[in-house]
Structure formats: C-alpha cells, structure tokens
Design a protein around this nucleic acid. Structure first.
Length: 886
RNA sequence: GCCGAGGUGGUGUAAUUGGUAGACACGCAAGCUUGAGGUGCUUGUGGGCAUUUGCCUGUAGGGGUUCGAGUCCCCUCCUCGGCACCA
C-alpha cells in the first residue's frame, strides 16, 4: 500500500537499462518517429530542474508516441566541444578532455533518474575523434563547394575568451558566453558562405511548422531588403561610388554621400587638405567597440573627405563624407543621404549644416519639412518623375538607371557569412594544410580525423593564435599535394559546427565509413519533433538548416529542412539575490545591469541582507540559483517531479519555480497509486468480456430511463457516469499530448481520478465490496495507460502488478469509445435578454420545440419574461436558448 | 522605434467554431480521521449585498459588433521576448 517510490523507480530504471527497453532499430513495419531535444553542452556541474522543463515533457511525448505504435527514436548526446565546455574547464582548472566525460556521465545519471527514455546505445559526444572526424569531413565538403573560405576581415573579437566570434554569438555587443564587450579586429579567418543560401533559408521558412515568433526572428536575422544599387561618379576622378538604397525614388533628394570609415575608396577620394582629419576619424572608428558603435540614439559624427560625387539623375555634385553610422558590412558600405526622408540622414544634415530637400509629399504639394518623412507618397522636385507615386517611381527610375548602366535592382541581406575559426584549443581542428608551394591544401579524406593533440596548456594565448600553434609536432606536417614541408591550420572550429549535423549522426552513430548510412538517414529523417530553447533562434537553427541544404545539394540527403516541427520550452525562473550596481558600473549602456547585478557566490555571504534585491531570473549555474533534481527526486520521487514540471504551466511558458506546488503533484501520484493498489484484488484481464451489458452503450444504456427529462437526467447509473468520464478523458488526453498541452492533459487525468474516487472510494485501503469487478478493471487498466507517459515508473510497476509481462510502452494507447464518451444529457442555458436566467437539462441533441417547452415550464424562466412580449428566440442545439423580449 | 507573444481569483493556470468564466491544482478556512517530521477524507473559497431560494458585479482600461464577447473589430495602457544608425 505504501507508495515506495524510491524502490519502484530504482527497479524500473534498472530494468529499462538491462532490457534496453528504449532501443530504437529500423523497422519497416512500424512508422518511424524521430523526436529530438537540443543536446546540452556540459557546463556547470549538472543538469537542473530548468533543463527538465524541456526533457521531461518531451520524454512523455515519446512514450506516448511509442504507445501509439510508432517506432520512436529518442536519442541524447553531448555538445561537448566549444567555448562553454572549455570555459568551464578553465574555471575549474581542469583539462577539458578529462572533465567532459565526467560531466556527461553526471548529466546522463540525472536524466536516467528523471526516468527519461533515451536510447543510450546512440549516445554521442561531439568531442570524440569518431565524431569530429565527420565534422572535419563536412568542412572539406563545404570547402570543395567553395562554401568555406579564408579571408582577412575585421571580426568580432572577444578579449576575455581571446577568440573570434560569429555574428550570431554576439549579443548586445557582448560575448554570448562571458558577456565581455566585443571588439573589432582584422584577422585572417575561416568563414562559411551561409549568405549564398540566404534566399533559400528565408523562403523555406514557409515550409516549417515553427512558431511565428521563431520564424520572424530568422527572417529578421536574414534581413532581406529589395532596392537598387546606384553609381555616383566621383568628381574629377575615374572612380565611382556604388551605393545601395531601398528608396531609389528619393534620388533627387540626395544631398550628400556617406561612406563607411573602412570603405576602400576613402583613402582614394580624400583630398590632401582633409587627409589628416579623415585618417584620425578612421582610426578612432576602428578602435571603437561594437557596443559604442551600435548604440542607438548616439550623436552623429563624421568628417568631410573633400570629394564630390555626381548624382546620376540630375548631374549635381554633392559632397562625400565618412561617418561611423554607415556599416561596411551591409550593402555596399556607402549610402546616398536623403535627409528629407530618412531620420538618420536628417540628424546628420542638421548637425553638419547640409541641405534638406523635399522630394516626397503626402499629397503632391511642397511644404516645409520639420522632420524627416520616411513614408511613401507622391514625388515632388524630381524632374520628369514628379507626380509619380513611390512604387511606380521606384520601378521607373530603376529601369532607367539600368538602361544607362548607372544602376540596377538588387536584393540585400543583413545576414553575414558565418565566422567559424576559433583561436581556442577545445574544438575540431580545421583540416587544412598551408603549403608554401601549393597554398591552402585540404587534408585528404583518408587522413581524417586531424586529431586534436593532448596538451598540457590549453589556455587561450591572447596573441590571436590558437594554443595549437605552440605545438610544433602538431603544426609541422607535409603537404598532401607536393609532400614538401608545410604547416597545419591551427584554428579550431566553433562549437556550432558540431551541432549543425549531430541530428544526422544519431541515426547511425557507430558508422566508421560515413557520417551515417544513407539507409539510416532515409529511414529516420527528417526530425519529426524538435524541442529546445528559443536562444538558438538565430545561431544553431540557422546553421543546421544551412548544412542540411548543402548536404541536400550534394545529393547526400533526401530532404532540405531538418526540423519540420519545432517547439520552444519556457524557462524556469528562480528567485535570485542581487544588488544595485556600484558607481563604476553605472552609466553603462547595457540595460540589463542598469539597476540590478546578480550577487556573486562570494558576495552573497557578506552582503547585508536588507540591501539584497531579490528578482526572478532564469535558472543557470552562473547565477547560482539552480535547484537540482536529485534533491527533489529524493524527497518526492521522479514521477512526482515529472508531473509537477508538466503540470505547473504550459510547455512554452516561463515559470517562477517554487516547491509549493510539488506537494500537490506528489499527492496526485500517490493517490493514483493507492487506488490502483486497492483495485488489484478485483482486477481481471478479461474484463472486456464480462462488462455488464447494462453499463455499455451497445446494450442501450444511453436510453435508460434515468435519461429522461422526468428523471432529471442524472446521467445514468454511477457505472455509466464513471465510464463516460473515463472515455472522455481518453479522448482529451490523447489530443492534448499530441499538441504538447501536458498541463491540461494532467488536469484531465486528475479529474478522472477524482471521479474514480467518487465512484469507488477507498475504505481502509480497499474498494467498496459492491464494486463491479469489470468496471474496476477497466478503470485500473486504463488509468495505468493514461499515466504511463507522465509517471513511467509507477505505470510500469502497476502494469506488472496487473499481470502483464511486457513493458507498458508496447501496449497500445487505449482508443476511446465515442458511444461511451457521449453525454446522454446536456445543460441548455436559458438566456433572457442576454442574461442567463435558468438552465434546463435535456437529452443530447434535443430539438428546439422540446427545449422551448421545457424552458417555459420552468418557474424561473417564466418569472424572467413575465409581463414582457417575446420578440424572438434563438436556439443553439445542446447549448443555449436565448429569449429576446420587451 | 519596429516585430512577436501576452495581460483572467490570494497564487500557478483552464475555457473547439463567440454560447454556464475560474476546470485542475496551490494556498487558506472549517470539520472529521489519523496520529503527531510536509498523513488521509469531506466541505467552503472571484468581489459586493442578502444569506433558505437569491440579486448585482467581474477576464488591464475605453468604445463597438451581436440575442449573447475572456474569445471578433477599433483605440489606449502595461508586461515579457527579440531586433535596432541595415541605408
């Protein structure tokens, strides 16, 4: 009777492991279902209850799919290469090579304890040679396709992590891992040409069943804009400045040109007398951090180059300036400025006394512009195009420019190429050899993997070189082409390279001949259900889509989008101690710390308690606010924790973690257990054959006399009511798990359990003697099946107790019987002039005349319409009778 | 500023196509049981008035459509997430 969850949970975790219950193997007889969670990177010392906010519901979903008859692939692995793991190793003064397996083991242990049904035979670790061999192989594939290239460019440099970062790894001008302000540093680096796929990455979003917010984030990041390139001849020179504009209709209003400080034409066009000032400005701009440079609402700065440029539409010469608000990386790095119709240009013109000209009008007339008017309208002051609406003008002038060879329509993307080089130790070495004679030579496939050497010092050097550069045995090699002496590339790949294809490897993790066999890929992929944090909206999800498309183009995959369906779990928030920032920390542009700083571990003890400010913050090891599952599991059991994590809020929502509610979930689980124990003596597996006829709809119970109006339609005998509730619950729960509404699915099961207790309450740990064995059997058996996705240990133990020899996850998810689930009577509301005054209980699908008659017989209804004239009645079957009167 | 998601009891939250607002839990209160380290059961619990039946009011605020609005439309306010000098 006692609910000994410790014993039960340990027992089933052992059986699942020994029997390999969740092992997935290709099986043509069953439809496959690939359900995947984003694999975690090992940082901090373990998984916390926040991680389980994703893993537990997704696990319930997998168990449900398995009961539905799907051949479920549910794998887990470790995103073990990259900065998070390496930073953690440095912090703990451990070698990542030794640390990562320990962390992985601890993570695995926690997931096992939480009762998650992974196929551990397929566990992968991206930092092992058998895995990163194929990461390197894919690099070479990209290289062969011209999609991996080396270039010297100003990159995002994190001075704290001492490495380059991709744009996607920079948040608010800060490093994604350590929050240090990012600098610009020109360096030779490896890039992946993701921009070549910008249009497809954008267009194929339409095919995906992702949240609108998620798709919008990707659209924003790709940032497509249509416009035109226009060439402005530099006065007195053969050079011309190419600008990109989305508003070629405002060409007549261009009163100056601005180049980005890094623009190659700057030194060329600058006049001798302006040179020193221009050079000083360029130097200053280079030294500025991304944060400074990108902070909005910042006063405009810039200098005049002394040059002039000729506007192709009217032949007028306008001055050429440089300013840091123009970015070299976007468009052509040069803009034509139309202060009349662009706010930034307006601010710049005001500051430097440049002319403002109106060329677009709301109504076709000219008026004084008090501010920039960026809206579309009717062209004015635009020569022969005056009077045209914006859209037409844009078309006409673009065509004219193209004809004259002065411009052309263009599409621009905000997306930049993906910087993959890291000057760090803990990553997959880039498989390239630099040969003085042959240049850049890819390592032949047969020589893969290029092993990451085991070293003493793996710390970043800070010189801009990878620690690998300091290992002569690694660097010195021979050229695969000419066999002459050569040196290896010493940069490693950023962690996102590993996570861009891991979902492929899970289908065939042991394959030594290919990243996965085509057969396995074709059978399992694409991923049917993907879950993970929204923080990967731009980075990982964009990269993985890009690699998939590359592999598809190469003919290696039969699909173009890896994750058809994506759901983002909400986070758990924990009450976190913080403090007001100190004087030297104030005034920073970063809003996140403007009035609150998380107290560091060592500060927490010393800080005066009355000055601590508590706030809800996302659980993370770095904030020191995590709750570990082991503790909760020890006190309440894994099944209770699972139920709580799913019941507390919708999957997608953030939740403020509190332990108050877990008691309620535990109460529910234990209550189910107690009833099932009491039901055992009555249980018989052949209950279907012995179900009393009067309790089944086939025997016509729906027409029983209790159903009539006269009887007040209590809904039939108790047996019928509890069966109805059971089958209604089945219908609800199935649909709700399918749509990831675990919280309401659990609420429905709780309702059912309440109904079961009302039908057969426990008396001294047993059921009432008069209980019908067949009904009790149906209730017990079905309850176990309903609970199986949520409380798996309890379900397996109960299933075994009922006499079943095989796992409950091979049992079919119970089908609901619509005839049993159907209500025999309904409440029909009686509304008088829009207010509910009464209700009548009538048989299901009762016709209008009967309901009317029934309603008018009721004293309450008659009282409400007394002395009034009934104008009309509106009848909605099974729902409402609305009486309008005066 | 732009884009996206939201705003419902003391709390977490629930309400197919507009049709009984607050299911299910937490908390709280009372009672019974148990026994006394988070036990179980029953009842009550949006607000106000009346307390036997009842009446009024209520889903951020304001307007609208409708027999009927948490749900649809318009405006305002607020919260969260993302983007932001992108030409």
């Amino acid at each position: 009777m006692n609910y000994n969850f410790r014993e039960i949970e340990a027992k089933w975790q052992r059986i699942w492991r020994e029997d390999q219950t969740f092992r997935a193997a290709a099986d043509e007889k069953r439809p496959k279902y690939y359900c995947l969670e984003m694999f975690p990177y090992p940082s901090g010392s373990g998984l916390h209850v926040g991680h389980l906010k994703n893993y537990v519901p997704t696990d319930a979903f997998c168990r449900f799919k398995s009961m539905q008859g799907y051949n479920v692939l549910h794998p887990m692995g470790w995103d073990a290469f990259g900065q998070p793991a390496e930073n953690e190793a440095i912090r703990r003064n451990r070698n990542p090579r030794a640390m990562v397996p320990e962390y992985a083991a601890a993570y695995r242990e926690t997931l096992v304890q939480a009762g998650c049904s992974y196929d551990w035979q397929r566990e992968i670790n991206s930092s092992l040679p058998e895995y990163y061999k194929w990461t390197q192989w894919m690099f070479l594939l990209l290289h062969r396709q011209g999609l991996a290239y080396r270039a010297t460019a100003p990159i995002n440099w994190c001075p704290a992590c001492k490495t380059g970062l991709a744009n996607e790894e920079v948040r608010d001008g800060r490093c994604w891992r350590c929050d240090a302000p990012v600098e610009k540093k020109p360096m030779p680096q490896w890039f992946f040409r993701i921009t070549a796929y910008a249009d497809r990455l954008l267009a194929d979003l339409e095919k995906l069943d992702w949240s609108e917010g998620m798709k919008e984030m990707q659209r924003d990041w790709i940032g497509r804009s249509e416009g035109a390139e226009v060439d402005f001849a530099v006065a007195g020179s053969r050079e011309s400045i190419r600008v990109f504009t989305t508003r070629p209709d405002t060409l007549f209003g261009a009163t100056f040109i601005v180049l980005a400080p890094e623009h190659p034409l700057v030194p060329v066009v600058t006049s001798a007398e302006r040179r020193s000032e221009v050079e000083a400005y360029v130097r200053k701009a280079q030294g500025e951090s991304e944060i400074d440079r990108l902070s909005a609402e910042r006063a405009k700065t810039g200098v005049f180059t002394g040059a002039g440029a000729v506007n192709p539409v009217n032949g007028e010469t306008i001055p050429v300036w440089i300013a840091d608000y123009v970015l070299m990386g976007y468009g052509t790095g040069a803009i034509m400025c139309v202060p009349g119709h662009d706010e930034r240009d307006f601010a710049f013109a005001r500051k430097f006394g440049l002319p403002v000209l109106q060329v677009v009008s709301r109504d076709g007339s000219c008026y004084d512009l008090q501010a920039a008017e960026p809206a579309e309208g009717i062209a004015v002051n635009s020569g022969r195009w005056s009077g045209l609406p914006t859209a037409e003008f844009t078309k006409a002038v673009t065509a004219w420019l193209q004809e004259k060879g002065l411009g052309r329509p263009t599409v621009n993307y905000r997306l930049r190429d993906w910087l993959i080089s890291r000057q760090r130790y803990w990553g997959a070495p880039i498989p390239i050899v630099h040969c003085p004679a042959c240049g850049e030579v890819p390592v032949p496939e047969a020589q893969l993997p290029v092993l990451l050497p085991d070293v003493e010092n793996y710390h970043p050097t800070g010189t801009g070189e990878s620690p690998l550069a300091a290992i002569p045995e690694f660097v010195r090699t021979v050229c695969p082409k000419c066999s002459g002496p050569a040196r290896r590339e010493t940069d490693t790949m950023g962690g996102y390279a590993c996570s861009s294809w891991y979902f492929l490897r899970f289908t065939d993790p042991g394959n030594a001949k290919a990243f996965a066999s085509r057969q396995a890929l074709d059978y399992w992929l694409p991923v049917d259900q993907y879950t993970g944090g929204i923080e990967h909206a731009r980075s990982h999800l964009l990269y993985a889509r890009f690699w998939t498309k590359v592999l598809f183009d190469e003919g290696l995959l039969g699909f173009e989008e890896p994750f058809l369906n994506l759901r983002n779990q909400g986070s758990l928030l924990a009450l976190t101690p913080g403090r007001r920032p100190r004087a030297q920390e104030e005034g920073r542009e970063d809003e996140k710390i403007i009035d609150w700083v998380v107290l560091k571990h060592d500060e927490r003890e010393k800080y005066p308690a009355d000055q601590i400010i508590w706030r809800w913050a996302r659980m993370s090891k770095s904030k020191g606010n995590v709750v570990t599952p082991e503790d909760i599991i020890g006190r309440f059991g894994a099944d209770s924790l699972r139920v709580y994590e799913m019941f507390v809020a919708p999957f997608e929502d953030n939740v403020q973690w509190s332990e108050e509610g877990i008691q309620g979930s535990h109460r529910f689980v234990a209550r189910a257990w107690r009833w099932l124990q009491a039901a055992r003596p009555l249980y018989r597996q052949d209950w279907r054959d012995s179900l009393p006829a009067e309790f089944s709809p086939e025997a016509g119970y729906a027409a029983a006399p209790t159903n009539s109006i006269e009887q007040g339609a209590k809904g039939g005998p108790a047996e019928c009511r509890v069966r109805r509730k059971l089958h209604q619950t089945l219908q609800k729960v199935g649909a709700q798990i399918e749509s990831f509404q675990f919280n309401t699915a659990l609420a429905a099961i709780m309702e059912l359990l309440n109904a079961i207790y009302a039908y057969a309450p426990l008396e001294k740990e047993s059921l009432p003697p008069a209980s019908d064995a067949a009904i009790v059997s149906e209730l017990a058996e079905t309850l176990v099946l309903l609970l199986a996705p949520f409380a798996p240990h309890l379900a397996e133990e109960s299933w075994q107790q009922l006499g079943f020899a095989t796992t409950v996850y091979r049992a079919p998810w119970p089908a609901f019987n619509p005839a049993v689930a159907a209500s025999d009577s309904v409440n029909v509301m009686v509304q008088v002039n829009g207010k509910i005054r009464d209700k009548v209980i009538v048989p299901l699908d009762c016709d209008e005349e009967t309901v009317k008659a029934e309603a008018l017989r009721s004293a309450k209804t008659r009282q409400s319409i007394e002395g009034k004239q009934v104008l009309k009645m509106i009848f909605v079957k099974n729902k409402m009778l609305s009486i309008v009167c005066k």
